[in-house]
Structures are given as structure tokens and as C-alpha cells.
Amino acid sequence: MEKVNEVFFSEKGLTSTSASHLADLAQETVLGNEAKLKNMSFITTKVDIVGSLSESGKTVSLGYDEKGLSEVKGLLEEIAEMNAFCAWMREAIKAKEREIQQINRCSFDEWCQLFGYPVIEKTELPKEIRAEDLIAEMNVKERNRYFTLEAIAATIGKYIHPGGKFSDAREELLTKTMKPYTADGTGKDTLIYSHTASVSQEKVEEVFFELQKIHRQNERELNRIKFALKRESDRLNLESQQKYKSELDKASLQYKRMFSQYKEWQIKESDRVSKLKIIVPDELQTTYEKLSLLEE
């Protein structure tokens, strides 16, 4: 098995079917939370007709109150949590599929080379080492942390960056606080809309800047990791190029094995890989337990 895929598997854990089902449940949770955040607004709008004796008008839409605002952070955190769980499980499932496909695609000559039986060895250009290859060398905790940082960056950034739901709602609050009335229509049919903040601007700013702080801290850590990966891949690529040059004119014999043994290996290895279980990282255990309850 390739090093890139080993980190996902153990003798104990989840089957691919269970992992896929839990990932689907996690995605449903994400969609549910996103639906709750879809119509985020901090404005309560009322309407009245010009000349009406009503003092308050009719309410046509309600903005988030403090309770609603207080739930935003939790919903975003759960979205990030579920996305991190999905990232791990989906990658693990794909890793197993890649391994089985690789076994089935392995030619007789490749198999001989893998086990050291004689074939003509050709000197080939070294494969470029990418950041993804170094990520593959990470242990469970490191790689899950990387997936989590990416999930948090994408989740929070989606809402607080310009054009995001929180950013737009915040801008709407600032605008309609300055212009609390708008009119639609003409003459006696003119509708007057009054706009009032459903939660204080200070509370909105407090949550907004808290999310910004979390996003900046997350981005800094993620960028530090990416920079370290780039620096290490450059070093390793330089070393491999130097080694390639020294071995360019060398050739050696490889070993080969009987075709029946090769087919037997294919069948047994494919069966072994298919039975491997997907591990649940310690950091995702709580999420796993939460999703497992949804199955009951």
C-alpha cells in the first residue's frame, strides 16, 4: 500500500459503507445549518400605507434577535466540524478505491519489479515531490489538523468575506440604520417601509470581529504549514535531481515471478485491502458519536 493511503486504515474502524453513510449524514447537517443561515438579516421590516392611522405598521420580515445572533457561531463551527469529518472519510474511501484499482491495474512486469524479480531496469526521471506528497507523510493528527484548518478557513471565509451572508447582513444593518425608511409606489398607494435593527450594531460587530479573529488565526497557521511544505518539497526535489544525475547511466536487472503467482497475489491483496477498516481520528471521535446517534 502506498504511504499516502496507509494513514487511513487499521484492523478496527469503519467499513467504507458506514463511513460513506456517516459522511452523508454530516453533509445533511451542513445543509441544514446553511439553510438556517441562508436568510441571515439583522433588520426587522415593517410596512404601512401613507395616511394610515396605524402607528407601528405591519411586520413583513423579522431580523435576527440576540438569540439568533448567538447561534451563528455555533452553526458555523458545526459546519466546519462536519466538513472536516467528511474530508477525512471521503479521502479514506477514495484511498481504498485507488489502492484496489492500483492492484487490478498492476501489470505482470510491474509486479515483478515490486517484489524484486529480474526485469530490465530503466533509469527514469524522478517524480516531482509536491506538497500533497508531504501531506501524505503526515500522521493522523497532523493530516486531520490540516483538513480541519482548510475546512474552517473555507467555512468562516464564505460568510464574512465581501458577498458572504454575514458580511451582507452587516452592511445592510449599517445602511438601513442610516436610512430607516424607504418608500415604494406613488400617491395614496405609496408604501412606507420602516427598518429597525433586530439586534444591536455593537453585538453584530462583536461577533463579526470575533469571527474575523478566528479566521485570521486559522489562516496564519494554515499558511505556516503550507510554507513549510513548499520549503521541504524544494529541498527534496533538489536532492532527488542530484541523485538522478549520479544514477542516470546505471542499469540493473530486476526479478520476475510466475504469472500464476502474480494472479494469486492480485486476488489476495485486493481482498485484504477491501477488508481494511477506516480509522476515526481522536479529534473526530465526538463528531462520529454525534452522527452515530442520528442513525438510531
Rank of each mutant, 00 (worst) to 15 (best):
74 G>N: 06
17 T>A: 14
43 I>A: 02
45 T>I: 14
20 S>W: 00
42 F>L: 02
69 L>F: 06
12 K>F: 11
33 N>F: 01
27 Q>R: 06
37 L>S: 00
15 T>D: 05
59 T>Y: 11
80 A>L: 11
74 G>C: 01
51 G>D: 04
37 L>N: 01
12 K>H: 12
26 A>R: 00
15 T>K: 11
70 S>A: 10
70 S>N: 15
5 N>C: 14
17 T>D: 10
21 H>E: 09
7 V>S: 10
28 E>T: 05
11 E>N: 15
49 I>H: 08
71 E>A: 15
16 S>K: 02
54 S>W: 04
81 E>D: 14
15 T>P: 10
9 F>I: 08
48 D>A: 13
60 V>W: 08
38 K>P: 08
61 S>L: 10
51 G>H: 03
30 V>H: 00
32 G>K: 05
40 M>S: 01
78 E>D: 15
73 K>S: 09
77 E>Y: 15
38 K>F: 13
21 H>D: 06
29 T>P: 00
74 G>F: 02
29 T>S: 11
47 V>N: 07
19 A>W: 03
80 A>V: 13
10 S>W: 08
79 I>D: 09
33 N>L: 07
63 G>L: 01
30 V>S: 00
28 E>Y: 06
21 H>M: 13
13 G>R: 05
43 I>K: 07
80 A>G: 13
60 V>R: 13
80 A>K: 10
76 L>Q: 12
55 E>M: 15
28 E>S: 01
12 K>V: 14
67 K>F: 12
16 S>P: 03
10 S>Q: 09
27 Q>V: 01
50 V>M: 14
80 A>D: 13
75 L>N: 06
30 V>N: 03
11 E>P: 08
68 G>A: 12
35 A>E: 11
33 N>E: 01
78 E>H: 12
69 L>E: 02
70 S>H: 13
49 I>M: 09
7 V>F: 04
61 S>R: 15
60 V>L: 09
57 G>K: 04
27 Q>H: 11
37 L>T: 03
31 L>Q: 15
35 A>V: 04
76 L>H: 12
75 L>F: 05
44 T>S: 09
